[in-house]
Amino acid sequence: MQKLIKNGLIQTSEEDVLDKAFDGSLPSNSALVPLSYFLVHTDAVLAQSNLGVWIDSDETPEDLAPYADKLTLIAINFPKFADGRGYSFARILRERFGFTGELRAIGDVLHDQLFYLKRCGFDAFAIREDKDATAALEGLGDFSENYQADVLQTSPLFRRRKSLA
């Protein structure tokens, strides 16, 4: 089973990630359906609490805006870890559309990306299956202070520096 780092703990991922072209009948087990499927079967997917949606890096997070308060799980795929679009997607979902459910990074998700992913609003990380998730946990704590504002710390360092000194 794929390891999932969530709430700072190692768990296993319950959800199947359905293919991007999936067009079958509504799954009964826990699953992540692709964005295109969700946009066609929106109400049916929303009615089932064991389903979430995943979007790929070449898709548009704005498509999920109307459902941000109804969805409980959104996953963003990183086809390659060097494909950084998902970082922007995450911030838009969190900061602009106010999504408060689970935001999961899937795909090429590795130890050394976790810290920035976390700052951009991800709270669950499906570590690539050939990697040691326990070792990766450490990546969440690489830095104790940052210059910029982010999803977790909405005030940039320059607004806080005085009180920290």
């Binding site: 060097a82 950084g84 970082y87 920035y116 700052r119 830095f143 910029q148 360092l157």
Partner: peptide, 13 residues
């Protein structure tokens, strides 16, 4: 410089 140093969103442009 400070803003761009370890900017979490723009490390994989």
């Amino acid at each position: 410089r400070q803003w761009s140093t370890f900017h979490p969103e723009f490390a994989y442009l």
